[in-house]
Structure formats: structure tokens, C-alpha cells
């Protein structure tokens, strides 16, 4: 089962630059390995990760075979107002996963 974990620090003040950490379970099969029958194991990787705040792009990663299994990505985001962050992962074999997190500024 695929499952994604997203860590967002709290509390958050306006103007903070926060580190967002994401981790998703995925084999990231390179397509360069052979099985016991000598057949190439087909490539099965996550090719794209995106984080958006509404319509605005925060961070996007185009991934290749050289990213380790269970891709971990940490990036930064400058919080200026309350917003909804949308995280999407896309990959081979029509892989698609979407997660949503609310960002609330604490007083």
C-alpha cells in the first residue's frame, strides 16, 4: 500500500520560512535490474512531485531513476497567509496520489 507522510512544523507565525518534509512509500524500480529469469524488471518510478498553494507553484521536483526508494523530499515555504497546500505525486503505471494540508497561522 502506498502511503504518504507530510510533516509541517507548528506553531507557524506570519513570515516564517517553514521546512516541509514529505515521504512516500514507493519501490522506485530503476528498470536497470534483472529478475531471476534474466528479464529486465520494468521501470516503475515516481517522475513528478508538486506542491501548490492554491494555483501558485511552491515546489516541483522532476525525479529520475537516481532517486532512492521511498522518495523523501524536504523543501521550504514562506508562509504569508492561511492557505491550503496541495501535494501530488505522479509516476509510471499511472501512479497518482494527492494529499491536502491546511496551513494556519497561529497568533
Amino acid at each position: 500500500m502506498t502511503n504518504a507522510r507530510i510533516a509541517i512544523p507548528s506553531p507557524i507565525k506570519s513570515g516564517d520560512v517553514i521546512e516541509i518534509k514529505t515521504l512516500i512509500t514507493h519501490p522506485m524500480e530503476t528498470g536497470l535490474r534483472y529478475d531471476s529469469m534474466g528479464q529486465v524488471i520494468p521501470r516503475n518510478i515516481i517522475t513528478q512531485f508538486e506542491c501548490r498553494c492554491g494555483p501558485d507553484l511552491v515546489f516541483k521536483a522532476l525525479l529520475n531513476r537516481g532517486i532512492a526508494a521511498n522518495p523523501y523530499l524536504s523543501f521550504f515555504f514562506e508562509v504569508v497567509s492561511n492557505c491550503t497546500l496541495e501535494f501530488t505525486w505522479q509516476g509510471d503505471k499511472n501512479f497518482y496520489l494527492r494529499e491536502v494540508r491546511e496551513i494556519r497561522i497561529d497568533r
Partner: peptide
């Protein structure tokens, strides 16, 4: 064998161009 590991793109709202990940 696949030398281009990744491309990271930053939107205007990224406060800092810093990324951590794990590679092969």
C-alpha cells in the same frame, strides 16, 4: 547509468532554495 538525478523547480513562494532528498 541515469546521470540526471532530478530537477527541482521553485515557485515565487519558496522562501529558500534548499532541498533534501536521498539518491542512488
Amino acid at each position: 547509468p541515469a546521470p540526471h538525478i532530478a530537477q527541482f523547480l521553485f515557485g515565487a513562494g519558496t522562501g529558500r532554495a534548499q532541498v533534501r532528498t536521498r539518491m542512488r
